[in-house]
Write a protein that binds this DNA or RNA. Structure first.
Lengths: 205, 205, 205, 205
DNA sequence: GATGAATGAGGCTTCATTCAT
DNA sequence: AATGAATGAAGCCTCATTCAT
């Protein structure tokens, strides 16, 4: 009887938004943006099609907000890593490497959909969005960090080795996304760990 | 005016099919399957929409045949590699590794579109098609081959190292597709080469 | 806190209705009925969409009531004019003519939106409503009055001249709505005034 | 069996376009742009909705092309009138006046829908289109021409009288569009004719 | 074989209206 | 009384596919 308070409305709104975002994320990650219809998202969330437009201006906008979330989530998670200053010696390099591997492992196992979407974006999908730039920035951040890390770990040819390290990481992630439980994700990460710590450290997992 | 022989007709037909397939490949690779319209393909090939249906039953079928071509091309190119029997000693391993790297490099530079589409497929795009099985087979073939190669090269932990090698290869390819001319593809391959030949061999490129 | 009396409530209600009507009038006049959304009206009035339906059954009904208001306003304003009995001699004709021109001028300058909507209705817009009849009645009233006036002013061919006078009036109004401040409205009215008073009277404006 | 020649196709296309334009003109003129749906136009022409988009890019575009046609048609018809140089003496003025009235009469009787749409445009509808400018130009042309004509006819106050003349013309047209067969269009034009020729000429109609 | 007009299903989006609170 | 979330019909538009020629 008494109308809802603005706070209640805001709360409801935010919940709904998340609900939609999560459903859309799952669908976009699995089928891709163009292959996912608004009807499908509506069905998935149990809402009417029209209601979606109460929360997002358009399908495109929904994608962009979702990508924002993806980038923010990934950016936040890796912030410490992406701002690694370098010059921390072998131990510092090891610490960073451990962080990279464990975090990566945890995130990709927990937020598989996020990574699937991230991978799709990386494969040049959705160029229309102003995204690739941000993607480039993130990728640059990774490169810088990895170069510093490899220097600290005493690796030679650190620029090209960084490219390989980065490629290996992405490749492992991609294969995991593809093979899923059958993929020896942790073993792979352990192997990388051993490779760069020259076997001086115990397993990570 | 001069009536064409049945062979000439068949030949013309086959040429047209290839033309269509190549145009579709380029478009699918760049924009994806759903974002590419039949009209676009028709425009690209200079034919009418109707004529396309003279060569392919449907858009879906066109995709499937194209994927067939992609797999066949990749299968043919890598046939020798994918049937590597193992047991060829260090020199044999080196030879195989060199083949893998040079072939990969040549193909991805020449047939970028093939690889783009392959990558899209790999990211679980078109699951509706009965493809993933063949993809799995190819991937399995790679794994077997790489395991053998690493054994011949005297590497320990060959199973998991094979996964890493494979991931690195795919990761490098992916990054190349993303960064293109700015990516130090040959340097990366050379580095891999050195890593496994323990520096006993000259550069590949 | 102090409970409002029923009269106060009724008063408030009526005020709200007017507020809505005025907002809708402005929007309908500027954009037309179909191009104006309920949401826009709600936004304009600062109320919620739901509340509008507390005051008007439907968008269509809102339009109809508004048209009623327009007709009522115009009817009231021109009542004296539209009931001119005729037979008042030259001076009576002049008095009426002066009234017509000054009133018209004042109204169109003050209530531009009313006239815009009136013009839209005149152009056969909203035929679905049972309006045109009333429009016809008003127009007939004008014709009768003008015929009487022209007779009193000593004009021959008063029937067809009435049509021309009426047309000129509407044409001037229309052009004013189109050109706005750039239109010499008062000059035009003065000219008409001179035309029918044979220059025996001073300017109106 | 033998495919249609490009000329046949072009011919068919042009016919269809005209068919659509005419149907849309009728509907837009009667109901307005926003109140007319693509479905209605399709029904009216007996085509499928989709086919309309083979001929016009969008509903908006259809309107614009139609308005182009309207302007071109009206522009062509009145070209001689709108370029009247002035300085032709009383007889020249009379000739022009006769042309204006007879042409106007013929066009509005034959192409009522054109004029209805023109009227709607004049009432500030469709401001989104880049049209109003062209409308202004046409209106300016009229004003110049009428001023010249009134000078040649020996009228004083030609600037403001031109405004009145123009208003009368538009007003008469509007009333005709509204009352149709019941409106004494030719009588009205005759009256105007007499007014400016000081009764020295016989009736026009 | 070849063309492009034609169809119709389905996609995205808007909006008048209803409803739970 | 008041809010704005929710619905569903309808509007615009696209596109794979068919068809007459």
């Amino acid at each position: 009887m008494s109308p809802r308070s603005p706070e209640q409305f805001a709360h409801l709104r935010e919940e709904r938004r998340q609900e939609i975002l999560m459903a859309a994320l799952r669908l976009f990650a699995d089928q891709g943006f163009e292959a996912t219809s608004i009807s499908q998202i509506a069905r998935e969330t149990g809402m009417s099609k029209g209601l979606l437009y109460n929360y997002f201006e358009s399908k495109q906008q929904l994608l962009e907000e979702m990508v924002n979330v993806v980038f923010q989530k990934i950016g936040l998670s890796f912030q410490e890593i992406l701002t690694y200053p370098g010059g921390q010696g072998f131990e510092g390099g090891c610490t960073l490497l451990a962080k990279i591997l464990t975090l990566n492992c945890r995130l990709i196992e927990q937020d598989t959909d996020f990574f699937k979407l991230y991978a799709r974006i990386g494969i040049q999908l959705y160029e229309k969005m102003a995204l690739p730039r941000r993607l480039y920035e993130v990728e640059d951040g990774w490169n810088r960090t990895i170069v510093h890390m490899l220097q600290d770990l005493g690796q030679a040819h650190e620029r090209i080795e960084a490219a390989l390290f980065h490629a290996t990481l992405d490749g492992v992630n991609l294969h995991y996304l593809f093979h899923f439980e059958k993929y020896p994700l942790q073993e792979a990460y352990n192997r990388i760990w051993h490779r760069y710590t020259v076997g001086q450290k115990p397993d990570l997992f």
